[in-house]
Design a protein around this nucleic acid. Sequence first.
DNA 1: ATTGAGCGT
Length: 300
Amino acid sequence: MMQPGATGGVPPQMDQSAPPPQQQQPPQPWMMMPAQAPPLMWNQQAAPPPQQQQQQTQVPSQAPQMAQAPAQYAVAQPQSHDEIRTLWIGDLQYWMEESYLLNCFSQTGEVVSAKVIRNKQSGQSENYGFVEFASRAAAERALQTYNGNLMPSVEQSFRLNWASLGSGERRDDTPDYTIFVGDLASDVTDYMLQETFRGHFTSVKGAKVVTDRMTGRSKGYGFVRFGDESEQLRAMNEMNGMFCSTRPMRIGPATTKKNVGTQQPQQQYSKEQDAKRLSHLRGLELISAEMRSPLVHGLV
DNA sequence: ATTGAGCGT
């Protein structure tokens, strides 16, 4: 379709002679930020190198043959090998190469390598990649700090997660009990959605806001996964109409694309539950205020 | 925008 005819690794609509002035994202009071919250800036003349590298631009963790490592990237050495220190990163644009990823996290000073997964035949990006950090703690910091915040040079936010598959990490094989959440405000991120529910339900495994893959923008709905079916059902009743960010959520059963575990067919809440739910709406202002407070979890 | 798709040589 939209084949970018063998172009380099630069965003097409971006004027590289005049990079956009520092995509400053709001502080995101949702996140319990670590003390040092590095501003995500597109700086340090590490602009996307136009030269195409057919091999991955991984910075060698130990560089015996490369005495001089590219100095524009802050690259760290792995501090341990027995722990997961790699993050999965998704929603990548086709022009986002390893150099872009390295630059994204260079301020942490704890990036070891970055890799964009490409189709073996076509060489096209599969729109996801991996970023390896010096330690699990470093990866966790990056996950907490960057996830959901804006990526440099684009109006889309980081979609990060632990790299779990294929790296020996014990996968969570317990079934997921998922709910559908609609009517989401455009600024709601995975993390915000997750924390909104985690404040009320302990078995929340994660949440995902569905985004347009081209623009990275929210489609206004998402999913929340629970470990306990009882909490899933309770959430459908109790959280419907609750505010996340600036709008009340519309919650419903999630249609399971792949059947996870021995999940029962999602049941719709009954009329009486619906009425009961409406009674909750009276306390909505109160609750929404809580939801919007910086501490979205653990307070109620 | 109202039921996604996202794990590697």
